[in-house]
């Protein structure tokens, strides 16, 4: 007889697979120095635009640099910057959302109108404008994207705080003489952490696209630093001669974004069936 696997079990299996894949990507970039035998910044006049071979598994670029090493090191830059940006936006947005949702009043009205105004502009357009003003560099790119990123966290945290604030267990804590700081730290924050963290995971893919996009436009990482977006941008000039120089960083970007987006979806499914 054919055994039916429950939806919960399927989602658990998917979750394990996605976590393993996401961790693999992180570890691959973290241990780039051990995995890649070539220096990502070492130019070689005799190996310019070499096709993938044993010495250079992903080939070389216009300056003879190993693309395999640059993809791994570039991933480190992209992933570290993405995680840092998502974490900072998560922290700022969550604090703002909790303060607005819990205390309400004039602070809530001012900050939420600011959020509405921020949402009124397309994120990438604002990011390009801000990065253009601030100049190149990964920090400028992060600030440019972060200006609009906190909003989704703030709105989500606010709506959850709003419902938790009036929950009976919070009223009970008030009867026990607990102050606002205690209630926010012990009851509100831990109870909204799961949905906001899930949102953070789904933001990883979008942020990666944003950072790589800015680097591609020359507003992110400045060459010769390795970063997937800037690698694609540099190599597109000679795509017909050495397509591998564009293909490998593009594939790395796409695979990583798919993994983290899908991980976010699976975590949302897992929270539903848990």
């Amino acid at each position: 007889m054919k055994k039916r696997i429950s939806r919960k079990k399927v989602i658990k299996i998917k979750l394990v697979i996605m976590v393993v894949l996401a961790l693999s990507v992180v570890f691959l970039t973290l241990f780039a120095g051990v995995i890649a035998k070539n220096d990502p910044y070492q130019t070689c006049a005799t190996s310019i635009r070499t096709a993938p071979c044993v010495d250079y598994p992903f080939g070389t670029d216009n300056l003879g640099r190993c693309i395999f090493a640059r993809v791994l090191y570039g991933g480190r830059t992209t992933i570290a910057a993405t995680f840092a940006l998502v974490f900072i936006s998560f922290a700022i947005g969550t604090v703002i959302g909790m303060v607005c949702g819990y205390f309400g009043g004039i602070i809530d009205r001012i900050l939420m109108r600011l959020a509405d105004i921020t949402l009124g502009f397309p994120q990438m357009v604002v990011a390009i404008a801000v990065a253009g003003i601030l100049g190149g560099g990964i920090k400028s790119a992060m600030i440019a994207l972060g200006i609009t990123m906190w909003v989704s966290f703030a709105r989500l945290a606010r709506s959850h705080t709003f419902s938790i604030r009036s929950a009976a267990f919070v009223q009970t804590a008030r009867f026990a003489g607990k102050n606002d700081a205690y209630i926010i730290m012990v009851h509100v924050f831990p109870n909204l952490l799961a949905p906001v963290l899930t949102n953070a995971l789904t933001q990883i893919g979008t942020t990666m696209i944003g950072l790589s996009g800015l680097s591609f436009l020359g507003l992110g990482v400045i060459p010769p630093a390795a970063e997937w977006g800037s690698m694609i941008s540099e190599a597109r000039a000679y795509i017909q001669i050495a397509p591998w120089a564009v293909i490998y960083p593009s594939v790395a970007t796409i695979i990583t974004i798919i993994i983290f987006n899908y991980l976010g979806d699976v975590i949302m499914d897992y929270r539903e069936v848990r």
Partner: peptide, 22 residues
């Protein structure tokens, strides 16, 4: 309630929701 909680306690209709789920 921080003051009134010294001498009275509420018991709510939905008892489960009066306990932090965590």
């Amino acid at each position: 309630p921080a003051h009134t909680g010294r001498f009275l306690q509420m018991i709510f209709q939905d008892a489960k929701s009066s306990f932090d789920p965590r």
